[in-house]
Amino acid sequence: MKTRRSDRLIDMTRYLLERPHTLVPLTFFSQRYESAKSSISEDLAIIRRTFAQRHTGILETVPGAAGGVRYIPVIAEAEAKDFIQNMATRLSDSERLLPGGYVYLTDLLGTPEILRQIGRLIATQYIDSSVDAVMTVATKGIPIAQSVSQYLNVPFVIVRRDSKITEGSTVSVNYVSGSSDRVEKMELSKRSLKPGSGVLIVDDFMKGGGTVNGMKSLIEEFDAKLVGVSVFAEGSFDGDRMIDDYTSLLQMDPVDAKAKTINAKPGNYLDVNAELLNGLEN
């Protein structure tokens, strides 16, 4: 029995949202709903228009016999600015200050809606890049990597500082911690990356850049290539960072432990991606 248009639209939208960056042939939808391709094309035009109006994403058409449609999640400039400013305000709450000058982030990075927005922001920056895997280091970067990988529809890999028997054989590198100058070790399962893979590094917080630099070294050991580096927040750092080319959603000034004040503000993400976000807005 043929499916009604209203039912088709709901099911097609759900199907596309669950499979970002996946090429879906029109034939698939035609057979799924026992409908003519012309009807499917009309349905997709409605979804495309609605996605554009609501800034849900781009519904890209790939012509030809092997073509179809592909959903590309994005975030518009106004929504990106509002989210980042909201995060800056929440991070500036003095109640987040922990002993030793650390800032409490766990509640934010454990909230599904916040993680969804972080994933959309970072994935939007790399919509035109060839990302084959998202890399992070255990543990707080894991939910961010998972969210980004979901929107890019690629695997995420976890770098660890200690061996896990479930990882099998691993590749390890020594790296210098950017904040303490200690030499530490990190490792990754040999099965995690294929040679030539494009890898996006994400993390929750960066100070001196030593951990990110260690992950860069691991990528080189796998004969893979670095696509970019994105972090949720960067802290102030006296001296030269080990990483120059990166984007941060938030930037935190030095914490005043005596006055118990925290000052968080937007990072460089909006400036780096101004042209891209403006184009998506329009």
Rank of each mutant, 00 (worst) to 15 (best):
D162T: 15
T124E: 03
V272N: 05
S197P: 04
L277Y: 11
I84N: 01
L226Y: 06
I122Y: 00
K164L: 13
V159I: 07
D7Y: 06
H21V: 03
R182P: 04
D223C: 09
T124K: 03
A45Q: 14
Y71R: 02
M252E: 11
G110V: 05
T22N: 04
D271L: 11
K260T: 08
E187R: 14
S189A: 14
S39E: 11
E60R: 15
F232G: 00
L16N: 10
N174R: 13
R241E: 02
L97C: 08
I127K: 12
S35L: 04
D253S: 14
K185M: 10
D7S: 15
S149N: 09
D7A: 12
L249M: 12
L218K: 05
T136P: 04
Q150D: 07
V212W: 02
G239K: 11
E221P: 02
I58G: 06
L9Y: 02
A259P: 05
P99C: 05
P99M: 07
S149A: 15
Q146V: 11
R19C: 08
V137F: 04
Y126P: 09
R8P: 03
N268E: 08
I84L: 07
A78N: 15
N268V: 12
S236A: 15
S177Y: 02
M252Y: 04
D162G: 10
G64W: 05
I84S: 00
L226G: 12
D82T: 13
I10S: 15
A264Y: 04
Y102F: 14
N282S: 13
A36G: 08
R191F: 04
G57N: 09
A233L: 14
D181F: 08
A259M: 10
P155Q: 05
N153C: 05
D245W: 05
K207I: 08
M1P: 12
K2F: 03
L16P: 10
D93W: 00
D245A: 09
R5Q: 08
R70S: 13
A257L: 13
